[in-house]
Amino acid sequence: MTDLMLQVKDLTMHYKTSKGEVSAVNNVSFVVEKGQSLGLVGESGCGKTSIAFSLLRLLPDNAEIKGGDIILDGANITDMDKKQLLKVRWKGISMVFQAAMNALNPIFTVGEQIVEAIQVHNPEINVAEAKNNVTDLFTLVGLDPKLMDRYPHEFSGGMRQRAVIAMALACHPKLIIADEPTTALDVIVQDRILSQLKEIQDRLDMSMIYISHDIAVIAEVSDRIGVMYAGRMAELAKANEIFKRPIHPYTYALMSAFPSIKGPKKSLTTLPGEPPDLLNPPSGCRFHPRCPRATVQCRQETPPFIEHSPGHFAACWHPMEVENE
């Protein structure tokens, strides 16, 4: 099993709130192979970002990992102490955050911030060396190295996002989590940043986890795709497979609800209802109140997350038939 970069087994995570416990991530399992990318897609509140924060153990105080294992390259992150975690963060896993504006400190130059990140995690590197590294990183993400002495407010949205990516790469991580890396950007900039990320991933042979609500973005960059719903993994398969033969009704609904500018204009279908309140999730399958195929069994029993065909996992009592090619 040496080709696995990350293995997440039955991860369960709750938030304690004044109203009760929110079951944000419930029994989620997936793997990321070395050099491969996994896309996690789902609507707001489905647990995508909670998973990302669990992987880095960057959870807020009211969150608690209730169970499960997170194994990064053979080491279990779930039972590490603070000191060990420090070594995993940045060097093992690093993260590209959604709001690039907030991820950079406005009172330091972009270069200084990356130099700091490098030195904190590699005390043996001196400033001059670290600056050299920043020059390489800037070139890698398509920024002019001369810009490293500028402040974040002097950067445009796309440049800031590139700077954040450069920072995430600073300590040569094995795995990068990109949480909605292009959501706030215009399409042309988004397109460039996505292709740059893909290129960097190939060149450095890294593993990636992309998190997005946008299945079109996920389709572009992921080798495998996991569809999440209400804190659970609904379906997980190779990108082609999941687009051609979705077997979970939610995946199917998500795809038929997504407008595209290419191909014939197909009619879009709506999904009735709204995502559930995770303070009080529905019994059985969490999708059953909105599912056209739901039966009594779906209301009562939680469907297991099982392999329906090689490499194609889904949690559904009544999976959709494999339809015409």
Partner: peptide
């Protein structure tokens, strides 16, 4: 602009 819009189909090759 049109060429930069991602398409929800992993097999679709966009011409950038």
């Amino acid at each position: 602009l049109i060429s930069a819009v991602p398409v929800p189909d992993p097999e679709f090759q966009r011409q950038a």
